[in-house]
Simulated assay, not measured.
Amino acid sequence: MEIIMTGLASILFGAGIYNLLQKQLLRIVVGTVLVSHGAHLYFLTMAQLKRGAPPLVVDGVTEYADPLPQALVLTAIVIAFGVTSFLLVLAYRTYTLNKTDNMEELRGSDHE
């Protein structure tokens, strides 16, 4: 199962980096989202996908699931959502002011 999850995280990283290298601002935002989701999936995979009882002390249970990686990824998802919403607002504001989302045009030319 870990091999499938690592492969899926690798696909997300690859697609995210491809989108980060594009010229359109919206594709760059999508690239950051894909890279962050790939990192979340990779972190959960490296924490070992264990099956066990909930982490409550009960007689007769010997294996518990570790809640720490899940809590860390949940926090990272909330932070990534905040960053994504900020980037989308920033991209919208840039488009309304400059009437373009092309990074080459936003940089300006060296001849000016």
Rank of each mutant, 00 (worst) to 15 (best):
V58N: 07
Y64A: 02
A76R: 03
M46S: 08
L21K: 02
P69I: 07
Y92A: 14
A76W: 02
T62G: 06
A47M: 13
T94V: 10
P67V: 00
A47G: 14
V83W: 04
A65F: 07
V33C: 08
A65C: 14
K23L: 07
M5S: 10
V33M: 10
A9S: 14
V89T: 05
L44D: 00
F43I: 11
Q24A: 03
K99C: 11
Y95A: 09
D101W: 09
K50F: 01
D66F: 00
I17K: 02
T6A: 12
L25V: 13
P67C: 04
L20P: 02
Q22W: 01
P67Y: 00
D110E: 14
T6K: 08
T32L: 11
T6Q: 05
M1F: 11
I28F: 14
V89P: 00
F86H: 06
T75S: 06
I17P: 01
G52E: 01
V30W: 09
K99N: 11
L41N: 02
Y18F: 15
E2K: 13
Q22M: 10
L68W: 00
L56N: 04
T45H: 05
T100P: 11
A39E: 05
M5P: 00
L25K: 05
T32G: 15
T96D: 09
D101Q: 14
D101M: 12
A47F: 04
P55N: 01
Y18W: 13
N98C: 13
V30N: 02
D59R: 08
G52T: 04
L87Q: 12
L87Y: 10
K23S: 09
G7R: 07
G7L: 10
L21N: 04
M5G: 00
I77V: 13
S85V: 12
Q22V: 09
E63F: 15
Y42A: 10
A9I: 08
I3D: 15
L88G: 00
M1T: 13
H40N: 14
V83R: 01
L44S: 00
L88V: 05
N19F: 14
H111M: 09
V33L: 13
V61G: 08
L106I: 12
I3S: 13
F13W: 06
V35T: 15
